[in-house]
Amino acid sequence: MRRFEFDQPPMLSRAEYNRADEIRDDHQRLKDGWSRALLLQIDPTGRYPLGEDGLGWIPAVDIDDAPPPEAVFLGLHPDDGHDMWAMRFDVLDGPKDDPRRGAQLLGPNEAGILSTALGVLNWHDTARFSPVDGAHTEPIKGGWARRNVISGREEFPRTDPAIITVVHDGGDRILLGRQKQWPDRWFSTLAGFVEPGESLEQCVLREVHEEVGVDAWNPQYIGSQPWPFPRSLMVGFEVTADPDQPLDFIDGEIAAAEWFGRAEVIEAIEAQQDWMGPDGNPIVDNARLRLPGSISIASALIRAWAYTPATGVR
C-alpha cells in the first residue's frame, strides 16, 4: 500500500481539453475548421510565443489557406471550441519562452496543449524515414501518423516510458541524487527508461540499484506525467530502502547522492528554490539543497512525500 499521494496531478497532467481524436482522419472536417483555427508556433529548440495571458496563438489562415502537411492537429480550444494546430517555425517573432521554465506559468489546459504539441512535433523530427526499410514517410491523420510512401505502412507517435521514484526510509529521510552534468547542490529523484521485457516495478528496483547501489523494496505507483523532452511518459513511484546500506554509483550516471531529512526538504520547497532563474541561467546562492522546478513530476513527488507524515496519515 502506498504511503503518500499527490494532492493534485503533476503540472503537465491536469489538462481537460477535448483532443477530438475522432476527427483526425477526417480530411474535409479538418480543412473546414482551418478558417477559424488557431496555430501555435514552436521553434526547433521547443520555444513558443507568448500572448497576453498565456500561449501566443495566431490565426491559422495567416500561414496558409488549408492545413499544411507538417501541421499537427491538437484538438479543440477549451474556450471557444476552435480547432488548434501546431507547427515548427525556424524563427519566432516577439516574446517567447522555454517550456522547461515557462510552462509553470501557464494554466492546466495550455500546459497540456503545449506538452502535446512538443511531444508530437519531436516525434515527427525523428520519423521522416521508415524504421523498416528506410523509405521516406509523409504525415497523415492531422499529424498523428506517418505513412511509408512506398509500402503504405503507417507509423504512429512514440512515447518512451520511464520510471521516476522517491526513495525513502519509511520514516523521515529521502534519498536524492545528482547527475554529473548538474551543478553542486542540485538534487532530484532517481529515474530511468523501462527496458524490453521489464515491468514498471522491476524497472524501479533495477534503476535504484544501478544508480545508487541500494536494494529497494515495495515499489508503489503514485501517478504519471508526460515529459516531451523529447517524448517520454514519466511514471512516478515511491519505494523503500535502508539508509544504512552503502551507496555505490554503479552505472556512473549519478555523481552524488545523499539522504536528506524531511525538515530540510520542506525548507527547500518553501524557499521556492527552483534550479533556474527567470533568465534561464542557474541560480547561484548558498542553499545546501536545490530541488527541481515545479513543472517536473519529480517536484510533485518530493512535495507529496515531504508533506505526508511518516505514518502515512495526512
Rank of each mutant, 00 (worst) to 15 (best):
F89A: 02
F6T: 05
I269K: 04
R29E: 12
E267F: 06
E207N: 00
P196N: 10
G94V: 01
W227L: 13
K96A: 12
R153E: 10
E195C: 08
D242C: 04
V212W: 10
D80N: 12
W275N: 05
P10A: 10
A241N: 15
L92G: 05
I222V: 13
G33D: 07
A111R: 03
G177N: 13
D43E: 08
K141R: 11
R128P: 11
A111I: 01
T240D: 06
N122K: 04
P67N: 07
R303G: 00
H124G: 05
D242Y: 05
A310M: 01
L176G: 00
R231H: 03
I42D: 11
E267P: 04
Q273N: 01
V166N: 15
P10Y: 05
W186T: 04
E198G: 09
Q41P: 00
V212A: 10
E195T: 00
G46R: 02
R314K: 13
A37N: 06
D79Q: 14
L118F: 03
G51N: 07
D98A: 07
V212H: 10
R288L: 15
S130C: 14
L76A: 00
E253H: 11
R206Q: 02
W227Y: 14
D172H: 10
D64H: 10
P49K: 05
P161A: 04
E52Q: 15
R88G: 09
E154K: 03
R128K: 13
D242K: 09
P282W: 07
V265N: 00
L39M: 14
K31M: 05
E267M: 03
A310Q: 06
L106G: 11
L205Y: 02
G261V: 07
R262C: 03
G252M: 04
Q245S: 12
R24G: 14
Y17P: 12
R100W: 03
C203R: 08
A162F: 02
R47Y: 08
D26G: 12
G134E: 10
F129N: 08
V167M: 12
T45E: 15
V166L: 15
W305T: 07
R146H: 06
H136T: 07
R101I: 04
H77M: 01
D26I: 09
G112S: 06
P68D: 01
A103C: 02
W182I: 09
G170R: 03
E258R: 04
D125Q: 06
I269T: 04
I283W: 06
P49D: 02
R173K: 13
Q28P: 14
V313Q: 00
R24I: 14
L175Q: 11
V166T: 15
D160R: 08
A111P: 06
Y221G: 01
P226V: 14
A145G: 06
L233S: 07
L118T: 10
R314F: 14
V72G: 07
W227P: 10
F89C: 03
G171N: 08
R314G: 12
R36M: 01
V235P: 15
P226R: 14
P68H: 03
E70D: 08
A86Y: 05
S130Q: 11
A191K: 02
S296L: 00
M276C: 00
A37T: 08
A127N: 01
R206W: 03
P309E: 01
A86I: 06
R206A: 05
P230W: 03
P131C: 09
I269Y: 08
V313E: 03
L200T: 10
V91N: 13
